[in-house]
């Protein structure tokens, strides 16, 4: 009996192996080490939607170089070491030619340490110092809880707070978000006036019945850059594609952008504005009077990047 089972098992394995070999020929497998838990969860959900929409659209249009895109996801658990293991697994076992993500490994490190959900014990002491402006490295869900909990203490009657006000955070805070706060955002769809963004937002809203978050737009842009590079390299092999990345020009949702030749940093800037209500968006505030700060003003100069690299 046992021998029979082993034989069946080996046959199944062999079939699976051959199936995967056959698949490898006409698909481009994209591995994604995603930050699924905790503060990463909201980002994960919206990124996944945008990535799946991009892959669906691209495959419907015949794929890239005639090959279909395929997504393989692994959970990095917001831990850099887990992320590294998962990345290896994606490359070696899942035969992924390209890896995308994670959202923010550096921030993830800080966040897992700061995993605080109850800020109330600390708010009175903060108020006693009578701050005019609160600058915080809280972001996402943590920032949202802080604002919600601090509001009934009347903190924002006297002080203003500034941080990253991305769409996920604004949605999570809802109408508890105070008006008139100065903050910044990575890729607020409502402040980008390109035609491609309009089309994307319309399709996204139709498909998912919600507005695309900053992270959704950025994930979509990332895939635009990747597929542009694959087409330019005329190859789906990562070693060929990496050669064309430096200086690559691609048409992002935010308009034409490029990857800096020296370190492949994309020239994507920041959007700074004041929180305000908008009749078009129910249940959350957006940034108004948005000023775009181009990447060239905020990114680390190449010389300094070189200095930091080992």
């Amino acid at each position: 009996m046992k021998g029979k089972h082993v034989k069946i098992f080996i046959t199944v394995l062999a079939v699976m192996f051959m199936a995967s070999m056959a698949q490898a020929g006409d698909t481009i497998r994209i591995g994604w080490t995603a930050d699924m838990p905790g503060v990463g969860a909201t980002f994960y959900a919206s990124q996944k939607k945008a990535i799946e929409m991009f892959i669906e659209q691209t495959n419907a249009a015949g794929g890239v170089l005639g090959k279909k895109l395929e997504l393989v996801i692994r959970d990095s658990k917001l831990k850099p070491d887990v992320g590294a293991t998962m990345a290896r697994e994606l490359i070696l076992s899942e035969k992924c030619e390209f890896l995308i993500g994670p959202t923010s490994s550096g921030v993830a490190l800080a966040v897992t340490k700061l995993g605080e959900t109850n800020y109330a014990p600390y708010i009175p002491t903060l108020m006693a110092k009578k701050p005019e402006v609160i600058y915080t490295n809280l972001w996402g869900g943590g920032l949202s809880s802080f604002i919600k909990q601090a509001k009934p203490y009347g903190l924002f009657k006297k002080a203003s707070i500034t941080s990253l006000y991305d769409l996920d955070m604004l949605r999570a805070t809802g109408m508890d978000m105070p008006e008139g706060l100065l903050g910044y955002s990575r890729c607020p769809f409502y402040a980008v006036n390109t035609l491609s963004m309009q089309v994307f937002v319309e399709q996204y809203h139709k498909k998912y019945n919600e507005w695309p978050s900053d992270w959704a737009c950025m994930a979509y842009d990332g895939l635009i850059a990747l597929t542009t590079a694959i087409k330019k390299a005329d190859s789906a092999k990562s070693e060929d594609v990496v050669k064309v990345l430096g200086g690559l020009r691609f048409l992002s949702l935010r308009g034409p952008r490029y990857l800096r030749a020296q370190d492949h940093m994309a020239d994507v800037g920041l959007y700074v504005g004041y929180t305000a209500k908008d009749p078009k968006y129910k249940g959350f505030l957006i940034l108004k009077d948005v000023v775009v700060v181009p990447a060239q003003m905020v990114w680390l100069p190449v010389a300094e990047v070189k200095k930091l690299q080992p």
């Binding site: 699924m36 838990p37 905790g38 869900g141 943590g142 809880s145 009934p152 203490y153 009347g154």
Partner: peptide
């Protein structure tokens, strides 16, 4: 799942009570 969640306070308990010149939820 891993999402951060909370239950909205009922309207009656969502505000604050004035305590000298401070506000207590």
């Amino acid at each position: 799942g891993g999402d951060i969640r909370n239950v909205a306070r009922p309207d009656l308990l969502a505000g604050s009570i004035k305590f000298f010149d401070m506000f207590l939820p």
